[in-house]
Design a protein around this nucleic acid. Sequence first.
DNA 1: TCTGGGGTCCTAGGACCC
DNA 2: TCTGGGGTCCTAGGACCC
Length: 428
Amino acid sequence: MAKREPVFALIDCNSFYASCERVFRTDLAKTPIVVLSNNDGCVIARSYDAKPFVQMAAPYFKIKDELRRHGVVAFSSNYALYGDMSERVMTIIESRVPSLEVYSIDEAFADLTGIPGDLTGFGRDIRETILKHTSLPVGVGIARTKTLAKLANHIAKQLPDEDQGVFNMCDPAVRDEVLRSSDVSDVWGIGKRMKTHLNAMGIETAMDLARADRWMLRQKFSVVIEKTSRELAGTPCLTLEEAQAPRHEICCSRMFGDRVMDIESLQQAVATYTQRAAEKLRAQHSLCKKIRVSIRTGMFNPDEARYANAALVELPYPTNDVRLMSKAATEAVNRLFRPGYRYSKAEVLLMDLRQPGEFTDDLFASAQPATATKVMEVLDAINGKWGRGTLRCASVPYEPGWAMRRELMSRSYTTKLDELWVVGKKLN
DNA sequence: TCTGGGGTCCTAGGACCC
DNA sequence: TCTGGGGTCCTAGGACCC
């Protein structure tokens, strides 16, 4: 029997955050929409019809009036809603493909190797099912490698409606045609810097990169670019990664709603971020040995005095005990704090993460006491049942003065009982 | 007044060891 | 005259992704 050729699909939601908002606001079906980053800082998603009016990452305060003039409606980001919608989409895809890698909140790679019959039809079927069950439009790219599937997906989004957002690039002739007409910067893994370097060497299109001297690519850049080149030429170098490995670092950082000047607020913020990071840490069953805390002022205003600094604290033993972690993190704030500055952001980064049992306990140092592990389990159980923050360290305020701005937030239509979508009753 | 929040991988270079 | 050759581990920094 002939060896089965590998086939990958990349399925991703179109303008995901904006589409999620639209699902529950049918009155905005024909209105351009943008979604803002945390703190209503800048634009992170645009509906298709908003794209002509707004640049990605444009600061909201600068373009507010312009948006209003064009009738573009803005939303604060509502991650509870997006996370829930994402799970629904992934569940549908998972039920139809042999194996799936959830790559981000709005996209997934699927292994279609060995699926008989017309793959384009298969892609259309998935797309229709998702649309029917969630009202979210997706694009499907199908090809021999992950990098090519990404490119196929990019093409799928530019197709006219009758092609239903599915593009199959398995045919070598079709693939070559696409490679020739795609700019090298459309390739997954080629950013702005790499484009500049490659262009300088005469590599302009995806086809140029596919045919470039691999040894030279590896010498001059890295093995990553070499793999990209091979993948474009049709040789799979990247595999589907179904099980998500535990993170090596866990980060929680936020801009403040307003500038902060006092040390108490910074301590509260850092305690709050540590709490959130510790939750993520325990969710992946890891322990952490080092914490890096950083604070900084705004970086954009030239008239404002700037300061940014970070401190690394090492814990006595690998732990997931939020009490120990908060104490260490807030002590770091005392070291970092300089009075007189207007702080805009703090960050807590958990580093040197380990799995229990993976490291050797030091003969003379202590390990996390069993009681602490138990206390954390109870803490997570209570917060899991009654909501995040029900039980917390005293240093974490309930309604902090420095909380981020989210003035344009939609409701938690799918995740809060008292905010459910009501059909047949006029909202807003 | 005001510009996000997560992550990943790779490489180079220094410290240290035998 | 003239000062090896590996190896490992760690960290910082660059580049990229969504």
